[in-house]
């Protein structure tokens, strides 16, 4: 049963990713990326990470990709301002062939791990209270640094995207 769920989610994730790099229009690519991200949220749930499952749906699919879709629609891109990509398919095929040894190396290194059952754990692992305890006990300084980074990104985005003054 879990195998079927995993295979379906993996199929949606990979097909969404392939659609993302193959579509010419960026709006279809963004919708394919939403499919991939939702499938990955399901896989996080299979891996006993319910908090990341929710964060993936709310933050990634709900905030980041929605912001991306909003920007794509806001720019009102016409077909003639899309860049021409004559070597797209050939670059993808050659790059995929060149990436195979790299992937095999990484899979070989992970293959040395002893196999262990990966069934879904119950309440005693991955609950939100465990997550919060770990986040605010062991990771408090990185958490505060992340908040400063988000503030800096907010200010930077506002400064960059405002209209230029007339003086040029």
């Amino acid at each position: 049963m879990i195998d079927i769920v995993f295979i379906v989610l993996a199929f949606f994730a990979v097909s969404g990713g392939l659609g993302m790099i193959l579509f010419a229009q960026p709006i279809y690519s963004a919708l394919s990326l939403i499919l991939t991200i939702l499938a990955l949220a399901g896989i996080f749930a299979l891996l006993s990470a319910p908090f990341l499952f929710m964060v993936q749906i709310i933050l990634y699919a709900g905030a980041i990709i929605t912001l991306l879709l909003f920007i794509i629609m806001f720019l009102n891109i016409r077909n003639d301002s899309l860049p021409e990509e004559p070597h797209k398919i050939s670059t993808i095929v050659v790059g995929a062939i060149l990436l195979i040894p790299f992937n095999l190396l990484i899979l070989k290194s992970f293959n040395t791990l002893p196999s262990k059952p990966m069934h879904i754990l119950g309440q005693d692992f991955g609950s939100i209270s465990d997550f919060g305890m770990e986040l605010f006990r062991g990771w408090l300084v990185p958490f505060e640094l992340i908040s400063m980074l988000l503030l800096a990104a907010l200010v930077g985005a506002v400064v960059l995207a405002r209209k230029d003054k007339i003086d040029g």
């Binding site: 964060v55 990634y60 720019l75 986040l135 062991g138 995207a161």
Partner: peptide
């Protein structure tokens, strides 16, 4: 549970990156 915390940090950094990157694109 620690890798899940790291994954949450990565998501937060991706959100910050989204704001700056998209404003640069605009």
């Amino acid at each position: 549970i620690q890798p899940q915390v790291i994954a949450l940090m990565i998501i937060a950094i991706a959100a910050a990156e989204a704001a700056v990157f998209l404003s640069l694109i605009v």
